[in-house]
Amino acid sequence: MKPWILGLTGGIGSGKSAAAQHFGELGIHTVDADYAARWVVEPGRPALAKIAAHFGTTILLPDGQLDRAALRAQVFANPEERRWLEQLLHPLIRQEIIEHLGRAQSPYAILVSPLLIESGQYQLTQRVLVVDVPEDLQVQRAMARDGSDEAQIRAIIAAQASREERLRHADDVLVNDRDLAWLQGEVERLHHFYLTLRGGQP
């Protein structure tokens, strides 16, 4: 029986990584879209050669790795360049995700993606779990974790899908406004429920 796919998302500082980690500890195969986005631009992969040919070698580090900061600086200032890059990378990232999800041996598998909704990656899933958290708490947590200032965090929040937008796509919502032990308990409760589902729907 092929595992069904759960999409797991939440804004910065929501605790989606901690939730994903606990699902993993329960034996569930998880694929992180952020890692897939890194794999596709590893040295030796065709995408990196295309990016270097397009933007020039200034976006490469001396060891041949992609200089993410340099690339970000180029595309953030220029919407056309950003579109070019997204058109190149999104299909490759999607392919990478599908390939990694295809290796799952667990009853269901999880695609963890901060941009699940915005990127359309939710279309690869049969069910969506949103880890939700009040915005002020989100800001506090992200500041504590990253040492970033409040304005930076709020800018990231503004760039991600709004809470309303995420919640509109959600089949399940985990409000993560307590401690880690509570979050893990909720993950276990959802996990037992998910084991009863066929194809992600009751």
Rank of each mutant, 00 (worst) to 15 (best):
G56L: 11
A73Y: 02
A142E: 03
G10I: 00
V40D: 11
L174Y: 04
G147S: 10
F193T: 11
A170E: 03
R83P: 00
N176D: 13
L183S: 12
L190Y: 13
I97Y: 10
L174E: 04
Y194P: 08
R82L: 14
V173K: 02
V75Y: 10
A20K: 04
I153A: 07
Q121C: 01
Y108V: 04
H192E: 13
K16N: 04
S17H: 05
H54T: 13
D149Y: 07
G13E: 10
P46K: 07
V112Y: 01
D63Q: 11
L101M: 06
D63T: 10
N78D: 15
G15D: 06
P43S: 08
P107E: 09
S17A: 10
I110M: 02
A181S: 15
I97W: 11
A158L: 07
R189V: 03
S119K: 02
H22L: 01
I153W: 07
L89K: 05
E80G: 09
A47F: 07
L101D: 05
N176Q: 11
H22W: 14
F55L: 12
L101P: 09
H29R: 06
N78R: 14
Q152Y: 08
A53R: 14
S162N: 01
R178C: 12
V131K: 01
G102M: 08
W39I: 08
I97N: 11
A33G: 07
H29S: 12
V128K: 08
L92S: 06
K50I: 14
I51T: 14
G185K: 03
Y122W: 15
R198W: 08
Q138G: 03
L71W: 09
I28W: 10
R178E: 15
Q121M: 09
S17E: 06
E186S: 09
W39M: 14
E42M: 12
V41M: 05
H192N: 13
F76I: 02
A18G: 10
E118G: 00
G10Q: 02
S113T: 04
D32A: 04
E188I: 00
G27W: 05
K50F: 05
G64I: 09
I156Q: 01
A77T: 12
Q121L: 15
A52P: 09
G27K: 04
P3I: 03
A47P: 12
I93C: 07
L195Q: 15
G200M: 09
D34I: 07
A77E: 13
L116Y: 00
L190F: 13
R145G: 05
I5D: 04
L66C: 14
D149M: 02
I51W: 11
H90C: 05
Q140K: 13
Q74S: 11
R103S: 09
Y35I: 13
G102C: 08
I5Q: 06
M1A: 14
M1K: 11
